[in-house]
Design a protein around this nucleic acid. Structure first.
Lengths: 149, 149
DNA sequence: ATAAAAAACATGTATATACACATAACGTAT
DNA sequence: ATACGTTATGTGTATATACATGTTTTTTAT
């Protein structure tokens, strides 16, 4: 479906406006599918993203800054997302001894187990979202990388 | 910059996960730029999107449903966004006479003037966001249209 | 004509983002 | 040793999304 049909627009001012809206609309669709999926596991896509980052560091400690700069959406939220994950016992946070401004953050066994349960299904979901093969996906990835500032 | 560098990930499970994250990350960058831009006019990107839809119908009345189905992010928000715009006097809402469940929604003169002031700058902004020419943008648009379900 | 179903909209709650600001701890220059 | 700037984190407020639910009005079935 063209983006014009999807949001019932007759005409865009130019191809760049069309592209900005097309990318945003596609991201919104991806997000809907992910929300549905993660809901079955009691977390949000953003919380999953934090868990994924923490697993990438495991068994090393992470801190709030490290999580922040690896997040897909970057502005100022890591602290509260980590809060939520602590309440669900998927993550542990304690004051860092060497630098007491920092918070040591570590994914728990429970968190790691959850990610393991999630992995396969998420893989299938991501494959099913796009009507293209792996080669085409790679091509689009390269294009996106190249057009960003 | 590759998406791996941007969010400091060593490796994705496959090209489809990479693509989902790449699109989401790019959409997030676009959104940041748009927020900055629209802030200068006292509205949000979402509020702008509603105004744009209402202008597309003008001088016909719109209603909440029509706005909803034309929104980029579709879930359940038109009513409250219209609220905000009414408070800023950019939009008028009144009960529809023929079907009293519906709300007639119409962009005001003030709203139309604002859009006119915004148009040029937004055009330049959208052009400046992407490092590609119009031909390339068109190609990417076609690809995005084709890979969505 | 009346009851049931559906439609259009509003609203309450949880989640997350954007941004400003506050606080505590650290590093550095003197 | 002290003062000052910086860094790491937390928090308050406004905005928006996701979803369930409620209210009013219209439509449909009988």
């Amino acid at each position: 479906m063209t983006i014009e049909e999807a949001i019932k627009v007759k005409k865009f001012h130019n191809e760049f406006e069309r592209l900005a809206i097309n990318i945003s609309y596609t991201a919104s669709l991806i997000r809907s599918r992910h929300i549905q999926f993660f809901k079955g596991h009691g977390i949000s896509p953003e919380q999953y993203n934090v868990l994924r980052i923490l697993r990438g560091q495991y068994p090393r400690q992470s801190n709030v800054n490290l999580v922040q700069e690896r997040m897909i959406d970057k502005m100022s939220n890591a602290s509260r997302l980590i809060d939520k994950l602590v309440k669900k016992q998927l993550v542990e946070r304690k004051q860092c001894e060497e630098d007491r401004r920092q918070a040591d953050v570590l994914i728990t066994r429970k968190g790691l187990d959850m990610l393991e349960r999630i992995d396969g299904g998420l893989d299938s979901l991501n494959r099913s979202i796009f009507k293209c093969d792996e080669k085409e996906a790679e091509r689009i990835n390269e294009i996106l990388n190249s057009i960003r500032d």
